[in-house]
Simulated scan of single mutants.
Amino acid sequence: MGERTPCVYILASRRNGTLYIGVTSDLPARIWQHKHDLVAGFTQRHRVHVLVWYEPHPTMESAIRREKALKEWKRAWKLRLIESANPQWRDLYPEIA
């Protein structure tokens, strides 16, 4: 994946733990920032640092639309989305770094 690919991503504190949905144009850099607590706010306060799902998009506009849609989803739907692609809830960061 190119470094400047728009992506929607989900971070988790642990399996079935607290979830965070975000969007970025530079996934490796953004996840590194989350993991090192350089992003003040929710992920820092709740220790949400494990990349469990991401989805590349052709444009930032489509990524933002998808992020907003996912944030409206029921929690059970988000868990199914994660588990369909990552049933072990592995940290995917090493694959993109």
Rank of each mutant, 00 (worst) to 15 (best):
G41I: 01
Y9D: 10
G2S: 15
T43N: 09
R45S: 13
I21F: 04
E61P: 00
A63H: 10
Y93V: 07
E61S: 15
R66N: 04
W77P: 00
R47C: 04
N16A: 10
F42A: 02
D37L: 09
G17T: 06
P28Q: 12
N86G: 01
W89E: 00
R15L: 04
T59S: 15
L79I: 12
L51G: 02
L51M: 09
G2C: 03
K35V: 14
L92V: 00
P58I: 10
D37P: 02
A12D: 12
V48P: 06
N16F: 15
V23F: 04
L81H: 01
F42V: 05
R45N: 13
I10V: 12
K35E: 14
M60K: 15
Y20I: 01
A76Y: 08
Y20R: 00
P58G: 15
W53M: 02
L27E: 04
K35Q: 14
W53N: 03
V39A: 07
S25P: 03
P58F: 13
L38P: 00
A40G: 02
V48I: 13
I31T: 09
P6N: 04
I10H: 10
R47E: 05
W32R: 14
L27Y: 08
R65S: 11
M60Y: 11
K71T: 01
T24P: 10
L51Y: 04
S13Q: 03
Y54T: 06
T43D: 08
W89Q: 00
W32D: 13
H49Y: 13
V23W: 05
V52A: 12
E83M: 01
E83D: 02
R75D: 01
K68W: 06
H57N: 14
N86Y: 05
R47Y: 03
D91I: 05
A40K: 02
R30Q: 14
L79E: 07
S62M: 02
R66H: 14
G41R: 04
W77Y: 03
E83H: 02
T24R: 06
R4D: 15
E72Q: 14
A97H: 05
Q33Y: 04
R75Q: 03
H36I: 05
N86H: 03
K68I: 06
E95G: 06
V48D: 08
Q88C: 02
I31N: 10
A69C: 01
W32I: 06
D91F: 04
S13G: 12
E95L: 15
A76E: 15
W73N: 04
P56N: 10
D26E: 12
A40H: 11
Q44F: 08
L81S: 00
S13Y: 07
P6E: 09
G2M: 11
S84R: 02
T18G: 05
D26V: 11
Q88P: 00
I10P: 07
P56H: 10
T43P: 01
V48K: 01
I21L: 07
Y54N: 03
I10L: 14
A97T: 05
P58Q: 15
A97V: 13
R4K: 13
L38I: 06
F42P: 00
G17M: 04
H57E: 14
A97W: 08
A69P: 00
A85I: 00
D26G: 11
Q44D: 11
M60S: 15
L81A: 01
E3A: 14
D91P: 05
R30T: 10
N16M: 13
W73G: 00
A12F: 05
V8W: 06
H57S: 13
I31M: 06
R80W: 01
P56K: 08
V8L: 11
E95S: 12
